[in-house]
Simulated scan of single mutants.
Amino acid sequence: MYRPPLPPFTEVSAIEKVRFAENSWNSRDPATVALAYTEDTRWRNRAEFLNGRDDVQAFLARKWNRELDYRLIKELWAFEGDRIAVRYAYEYHDDSGQWFRAYGNENWEFAVDGLMRARHCSINEHPIAEADRRFHWPLGPRPEYHPDLTHFGF
């Protein structure tokens, strides 16, 4: 299985890879999203360490069961060879209706087939009022016309 674009990345292909990842995560479909990772992928997400695609799928199912109406924007930060660094922000609410915005950075390493073999993630989040939300699009991929992180100053 190949997951283009493939490393080594150019600026254009790295931006494309980041947008594909953003669109996939905005689907909130753990089984589909997990297919972007190698069978033996290694993750650090905050203080949680995951090993393998099955762990990733279970993690994502838990995440999106708690983080409701999740909307994410990712932006390329840097790239070289088989590695990409991104920054991102996402908004969601919990089951009590409290909204949150999370900010983070990820470092990705890819196998030659374009699947991600390592993901190192750092995240901070804080509660926000519903009126302070910035990500307003129908659930699913962010429309091309919607502003990116730089636009918001995030």
Rank of each mutant, 00 (worst) to 15 (best):
R46E: 15
F49I: 08
Y2V: 15
A111G: 01
W77A: 15
N124Q: 10
G52V: 03
R62D: 02
C121A: 03
L35A: 08
W25G: 07
W43M: 09
V86S: 01
W137E: 04
E125G: 10
I128L: 14
Q98T: 09
L149M: 12
F152V: 12
R117L: 15
Y2M: 14
K74F: 10
R119V: 15
L68T: 01
F135V: 02
I84L: 01
E11A: 02
F135E: 02
W108T: 08
N45C: 03
W64E: 12
W77D: 15
R62N: 01
L76H: 10
S122K: 04
E80P: 06
G140N: 13
F152M: 11
D40S: 14
Y92M: 12
T150L: 03
W99V: 04
A129Y: 06
P30T: 11
A47W: 07
A61H: 05
G97H: 09
L35C: 08
R142M: 13
I128N: 11
W99Q: 04
F59V: 02
R133S: 10
Y92E: 14
E67L: 12
L115D: 00
Y2R: 14
D40E: 11
L68N: 05
K17G: 07
F152C: 11
S24W: 02
A89V: 13
A34H: 09
E109R: 13
R53M: 04
M116K: 07
A102E: 10
E11G: 07
F110T: 02
K17S: 09
A129I: 14
Y145L: 07
C121Y: 02
T32Q: 11
M116F: 11
K74I: 05
G140D: 11
D148F: 02
V18T: 09
R87P: 05
S122L: 14
Y90A: 06
L68K: 10
A129K: 15
R44E: 10
A102V: 03
V33W: 07
T10Q: 07
L50S: 07
G140S: 11
A61Q: 13
E91I: 03
D69K: 13
H120M: 05
G81D: 13
E11C: 01
W137L: 03
W64Y: 10
R3D: 12
Y88F: 03
W99G: 06
W137D: 08
W99T: 04
G114N: 02
N23H: 14
R119D: 08
